[in-house]
């Protein structure tokens, strides 16, 4: 059996990774809930955010500015994506929506590769995140704790946005009954553009936060995207609480199983997903979805 210290430190790793996955997946789930499409470019937006943060950090040497710029620029890219292409797809079959976002994702990732090369770019941890903390039972890197805090704060921000603002009200109403929202005279297309932008902000922000842990690379988003898909399958597609719960579960599975045998950690995650499909095909908190 692993020691208590190892167990606790893996538990924290799982929480930090889980909060990050929850953030990425909640962007995915908000977009799906409102727009009815799954964004296959979500991983690319994650990588784009990491690079935007990397460039900003190089220019300003401020991690806070890197976070802000990464989130903002990715959000703008999201607005542009929705406004230029994705809105033309709402009336088309779901397969076409997947294909176009998948294609946009390739264009983003390959543009990053052309601009920065295929090698990984090291993004330094912020000055206030360096060092190791003695938590009595185990030593733990400060930055990972901060990742947990930052991601939790961002999730809380999203929660406030969805449940306590007028825009959030429209978004939730749109998930329930899009036709009625339109009949009430709300300019749905503008809301949809904005929602896609918010989803992109969540992915880009998570990308900046994650970059110091793994380094930025053009393909860094692809495994995160698949994991966030698993998160929404577990949590229920279109449900914000589902994304949070699913994210934590996925993060814990990935890190707790790697304590026993790292070779099986990813496999265990997908095995859980397969199990969920048998027991609860709609996910933990999913409703009768559009899928």
């Amino acid at each position: 059996m692993p020691s208590l210290g190892l167990f606790l430190s893996q538990l924290f790793n799982g929480l930090a990774l889980g909060a990050l996955l929850a953030l990425v997946a909640s962007g995915l789930t908000i977009i799906f809930g409102t727009l009815g499409l799954v964004n296959f470019a979500h991983g690319a937006l994650f990588a784009f955010g990491a690079y935007a943060g990397f460039v900003t950090y190089g220019l300003t040497h401020s991690f806070v500015l890197a976070l802000a710029a990464g989130a903002l620029v990715t959000g703008l890219l999201g607005l542009l994506m929705e406004w230029s292409l994705i809105r033309r797809y709402y009336a088309r079959p779901p397969e076409d929506q997947i294909l176009v976002t998948f294609g946009i994702g390739i264009v983003i990732v390959e543009s990053l590769r052309m601009a920065f090369g295929g090698l990984t770019q090291n993004v330094p941890q912020p000055a206030w995140g360096r060092g190791i903390l003695n938590l009595h039972y185990f030593f733990y890197p400060v930055y990972r704790l901060e990742v947990l805090g930052i991601a939790a704060l961002a999730l809380f921000g999203l929660y406030l946005l969805i449940y306590w603002t007028r825009l959030g009200l429209i978004v939730r109403a749109g998930i329930e009954d899009p036709l009625m929202v339109r009949m009430l005279g709300i300019r749905v297309p503008r809301v949809m553009t904005l929602v896609f932008g918010i989803g992109a902000v969540a992915a880009g922000f998570a990308g900046v936060v994650y970059a110091p842990i793994v380094s930025a690379a053009p393909d860094m988003g692809s495994s995160v995207q698949v994991q966030s898909f698993v998160v929404v399958v577990i949590g229920g597609l279109g449900s914000f609480p589902g994304a949070v719960v699913g994210g934590i579960i996925a993060g814990e599975i990935l890190s707790l199983t790697s304590m026993f045998d790292p070779a099986y950690s990813d496999v265990a995650l997908y095995a859980l997903m397969a199990l969920m499909l048998f027991v609860l095909p709609r996910g933990l908190l999913g409703t009768e979805g559009r899928g």
Binding site: F32, L37, V38, F40, P94, E95, Q97, I98, S223, V226, F229, V230, V232, V233, L237, D266, V267, Y270, A271, M273, A274, L277, F278, P281, G291
Partner: peptide
Amino acid sequence: LRRVGIYFAMITLAFGEM
């Protein structure tokens, strides 16, 4: 095949990765 449409695309992607 327990799910269709977008779910099917996401799930097959996940099994590919697995």
